[in-house]
């Protein structure tokens, strides 16, 4: 149970960083923390005490395996996360090029 609580704390740390920091790179880092805590949660729900890797190898008789589906889900989610991060960072660089700053207080051309 303690691992799930730690996982949730990691989520909250990410949320705190996302809400309080003013540097857009730090906001992206906070967002990554949130996503990583979710990946960790997904891996944890598939874990079975004493389970082995779900690979069929000739000659080895496996009694109990961990749930492979959450692992596949996490891999997919990591790939999606990679695309999102690449998009965010390239936007951040473009923003720096236009505004010459990473500070969200200076990036304010939209209002209303």
């Amino acid at each position: 149970m303690i691992v799930f609580i730690l996982c949730f704390i990691l989520f909250l740390v990410g949320l705190f960083g996302l809400l309080t920091s003013r540097n857009i790179i730090k906001i992206i880092i906070g967002l990554s923390f949130m996503e990583f805590s979710v990946y960790l949660f997904l891996v944890l729900i598939g874990y079975i005490e004493g389970g082995q890797a779900p690979i069929v190898v000739k000659g080895i008789d496996i009694q109990m395996i961990v749930d492979p589906l959450p692992q596949a889900m996490v891999l997919t989610a990591i790939v999606i996360g990679l695309a999102t991060k690449a998009m965010l960072l390239s936007t951040a660089i473009r923003i720096y090029k236009k505004f010459r700053s990473f500070d969200i207080r200076k990036i304010r051309s939209l209002k209303g």
Binding site: I24, M87, I95, K98, S109
Partner: peptide, 19 residues
């Protein structure tokens, strides 16, 4: 300027939704 700022906002909130 405007498009990038709007897209950044959209991406951060969209990322939270994704999580």
């Amino acid at each position: 300027k405007e498009e990038l700022e709007a897209s950044f906002k959209y991406q951060v909130l969209g990322g939270m939704a994704t999580a």
